[in-house]
Design a protein around this nucleic acid. Structure first.
Lengths: 234, 234
DNA sequence: GTCTATATGGAGATAGAC
DNA sequence: GTCTATCTCCATATAGAC
């Protein structure tokens, strides 16, 4: 190993140590109450060193997001490979995520404070777009290979809708103070079967107006750029 | 006027001036970026004086909440007296609120960061309970005198549901970057008629399972204290 | 009771030596 | 790449004048 490679190794180890210390403290005290000083001390480096690796406290959170994505991806892929029905798949996906996030629930509480799509740390922000899109794609795959038939007009939006459903559940879970977050489990089991049934029945001609409503609402909520004339005069 | 009364008058004026300055700065820069120093300076008092009247920065926000309630109440009462149909009433109520909050949209953006029901400033917190309950009561009144028939099992929950619907719309409005928040207007007009229709049809025997579902979900979400055995083994 | 002036302690961040 | 020393800014506290 060249000296240069050795240096890279060392710096990566330091970086990892700092991130680890930060996450440990975030978990224990939440984001706001963990100071950069504490983090540096916990990692055994000087304050300046922590800032050398992570330009800001927020950067630590972004690193956490990215690591989450990297660690979760293979587990979710595996779950998709092993399961087939839509309901079974969605359940597996959410169970994996909840299990993974469980030790970080306190941290996520601090993060979910950022609902504002303008805020970089928000799950709806531009900065987290890549992560979000990748996550939505997993829902698309969950739909694709499952035998569930979905009408064209709804299919485009469904992955995003399922992602929103997931985010709602996660938000509820974060603030669920019942023992072992039992309430979330209940809410999930009660809603999941309904969500799946709704999707399965969505092709029925009778439900066409409902589909129309959903796609209209999504156009209003997500529609980017200008509003159409028709919408403006509504 | 006795000297004592005069003193009270003066202190109230100072208090009002500080609150006014705070709100003005909150509006301009948002909650986080307005400092107590700025507020004191804007009000023409020393920093200590600001803390004499408001024990903390948060106390200023609570005062804003309370003032909002006091100023909005009569306008909402008046709207209820003038209108009759449920749809008409809900529209009037929300229009009044949106118009009232419009100048404070930026401030509300900073505040809506507090979703955590444990956080005092959260609209779901214990500290804001009185305000929230009063607001929910207005929805109850909107339902009561309107001729809309609502089945027993749903009636208990409906005011709270409508309040949640309102909060959802407000949250969307806060982050709605379309010109004049046109998207919110659209979303409101599109959803309101559906909400009202759903309520009107809720008595149909066919919709009984849907009602059951809604009340079950609310029990999970709002249920306080222990979960029942039935729920735990579900 | 009302208010000014000043102090405290801690935060995020950075410059520049090593 | 890493550290020490230091900066700036803030919410909040307090002592004591009026």
């Amino acid at each position: 190993m060249s000296p240069k490679e050795k240096a890279i190794r060392k710096s990566e180890a330091t970086r990892a140590r700092i991130l680890e210390a930060a996450l440990s403290l975030f978990r224990k005290r939440g984001f706001e109450n963990a100071t950069m000083r504490d983090i540096a001390k916990e990692a055994g480096v000087a304050l300046g060193a922590a800032y050398y690796y992570f330009h800001s406290k927020e950067a630590l959170v972004m690193a956490f997001y990215e690591r989450t994505q990297i660690e979760l991806s293979p587990r979710l892929e595996e779950a998709l490979a092993k399961t087939h029905g839509l309901e079974e798949r969605l359940r597996a996906m959410l169970e994996i995520k909840l299990a993974y996030f469980a030790p970080n629930r306190k941290l996520m509480g601090a993060l979910s404070a950022h609902i504002d799509p303008q805020h970089p740390l928000s799950p709806f922000s531009e900065a987290t777009r890549a992560i979000r899109e990748q996550d939505i794609q997993l829902f698309e795959r969950a739909l694709q290979d499952s035998k569930t038939r979905v009408p064209e007009d709804l299919r485009i939006h469904l992955p995003r809708l399922l992602w929103l459903y997931q985010m709602g559940l996660l938000l509820f879970w974060i603030y669920d103070r019942s023992p072992q977050q039992k309430r979330t489990t209940l809410l999930f089991s009660k809603t999941l079967s309904i969500v799946v049934k709704l999707i399965q029945f969505s092709g029925f001609p009778l439900l066409r107006p409902v589909r129309k409503l959903v796609t209209d609402l999504l156009a209003i909520i997500y529609g980017e750029g200008e509003l159409t004339v028709a919408e403006e005069t509504l």
